[in-house]
């Protein structure tokens, strides 16, 4: 009895929240979140498998970007990030120096990794498919990230984790193959506070 009454109450409350979120000029501003992407609120990591060597993990420590989330119309959302390739860090000076060198990322030749979204599609209550163009290692290719929103609807800051994978060969980045796998996984975790 009590349970039943509570759930009805919650449904009504939820309905009210949704109603205020989706209608009226009052809620329009709250439906859009604009946030900066900086190392202070975002972590950009990668993992890559290898033969005879456990999975290698690393991060990029220097980047800047912008995030615009349109909750009412997700397709109008937008992300752009510019990463300094030389900021790669694999947790040790010798391995990091190797990854930066011309044998791997060749950061002197390819100093910037750039991503800008081209389409955003809602795929579930808390998930979004984010496709964009990744400019990396002198090539540009589309990459799709699965974005999982961790924070509850309406909750701020907006916490999310984006996961995606690139085929290194598509970018002509074949160093270490086939000992180092062609697929590199990218994980971006961020909390977006409104500007």
């Amino acid at each position: 009895m009590v349970k039943c009454r509570r759930s009805t109450l919650m449904r009504t409350a939820l309905g009210l929240v949704l109603l205020t979120m989706s209608t009226g000029p009052l809620s329009a501003a709250a439906d859009v979140l604009s946030a900066a992407i900086t190392p202070a609120n975002t972590r950009i990591g990668f993992t890559i498998n290898g033969i005879g060597w456990p999975q290698t993990k690393g991060i990029f420590a220097a980047f800047r970007g912008r995030l615009r989330v349109d909750f009412a119309n997700p397709a109008k959302s937008f992300v752009a990030v510019k990463i300094q390739a030389a900021s790669v860090d694999a947790g040790g000076s010798s391995i990091t120096a190797y990854i930066r060198s011309s044998a791997m990322l060749d950061v002197a030749q390819h100093p910037v990794v750039d991503f800008r979204s081209t389409s955003v599609r809602r795929t579930g209550a808390q998930t979004v498919a984010l496709t964009g163009l990744l400019s990396f290692f002198g090539a540009v290719h589309p990459v799709t990230f699965t974005v999982r929103v961790l924070s509850k609807p309406g909750q701020r800051p907006l916490a999310f984790v984006a996961t995606g994978a690139i085929q290194r060969s598509a970018f002509g980045f074949n160093s270490g193959q086939p000992l180092i796998s062609d697929t590199a996984r990218i994980t971006i975790a961020s909390i977006g506070r409104g500007l």
Binding site: P54, T56, K57, A90, G91, G92, S93, S94, I95, T96, Y98
Partner: peptide
């Protein structure tokens, strides 16, 4: 287990 230390040990 630390990948940085392991890499250095190889060197």
């Amino acid at each position: 287990s630390d990948q940085g230390l392991r890499f250095t040990l190889y060197q």
